[in-house]
Simulated assay, not measured.
Amino acid sequence: MGLLENFSSGLFIIQSVIFLILLFVLGKFAWKPILTALNEREVSIQDAINQAKLAKEEVANLKADNERIIREAKAERDAILKEARELKDKIVGEAKDLAKSEGDKMIEQAKQSINAEKNAAMADIKNQIGSLSVEIAETILKQKLDNADAHNALVEKIINKSNLN
């Protein structure tokens, strides 16, 4: 057993030396690049997280800006609609006033035309009545004044009447 123990202990020492050499080689060539890569990865992940936070804040700001722009657009639309309604009411009111004014003018012109036609008709009727009266009086006088005595009596009556006036 002595040999086996010596061999085992020698093997243990050799394995320990190989392990230490391996640790030294890994420490010299592998650990630094691995740790550097891990640190770079951690930094890049942290940068990505920070950029994601910034992007999230930017999206929130854009959303707030969009909501503000939408509110302003709605307010502007409401103002434009209100102005359009007021303009429509004003135009309709002016049109009604103009129509009423034109209607009143037309009614007044119709009244004046009716009065003018009425006056012309009355004058025509008076002329016709005057002509008829003269014709009737002429006919009556011709019948009554066929004899000379009636004619002389009428002339005296007219002269006496005109002297009194």
Rank of each mutant, 00 (worst) to 15 (best):
1 M>P: 08
2 G>N: 15
2 G>D: 15
3 L>V: 11
4 L>Q: 12
4 L>H: 11
5 E>S: 14
6 N>T: 12
6 N>F: 15
8 S>A: 15
10 G>A: 05
12 F>H: 15
14 I>M: 06
15 Q>L: 11
15 Q>Y: 04
18 I>N: 07
18 I>Q: 07
22 L>M: 03
25 V>G: 02
25 V>H: 06
26 L>C: 15
26 L>Q: 14
27 G>H: 15
28 K>Y: 02
28 K>S: 10
32 K>S: 12
34 I>H: 01
35 L>A: 05
36 T>W: 08
37 A>Q: 06
37 A>E: 05
39 N>H: 04
39 N>G: 01
41 R>E: 03
43 V>H: 10
45 I>F: 00
48 A>R: 05
48 A>L: 05
49 I>Q: 12
52 A>K: 13
57 E>A: 10
58 E>F: 04
58 E>I: 12
59 V>H: 01
60 A>E: 00
61 N>V: 02
64 A>M: 09
65 D>G: 09
68 R>N: 07
68 R>S: 02
71 R>I: 07
75 A>F: 03
75 A>I: 07
84 A>H: 00
85 R>T: 14
85 R>E: 11
86 E>M: 06
86 E>F: 01
87 L>V: 04
87 L>H: 02
88 K>A: 13
88 K>M: 09
89 D>E: 08
90 K>A: 07
92 V>S: 04
93 G>R: 03
98 L>Y: 08
98 L>P: 03
99 A>C: 01
99 A>F: 09
101 S>D: 14
101 S>Q: 05
104 D>E: 07
104 D>I: 09
105 K>H: 10
107 I>L: 12
108 E>V: 11
109 Q>V: 00
110 A>D: 00
111 K>V: 01
114 I>A: 05
115 N>V: 14
122 M>T: 14
124 D>C: 14
125 I>D: 08
127 N>E: 10
130 G>M: 14
131 S>I: 10
131 S>A: 11
132 L>Y: 02
133 S>V: 05
135 E>Y: 13
140 I>T: 04
141 L>R: 12
144 K>L: 14
145 L>G: 11
153 A>H: 08
156 E>V: 13
156 E>R: 13
159 I>C: 02
162 S>K: 03
164 L>M: 00
165 N>I: 04
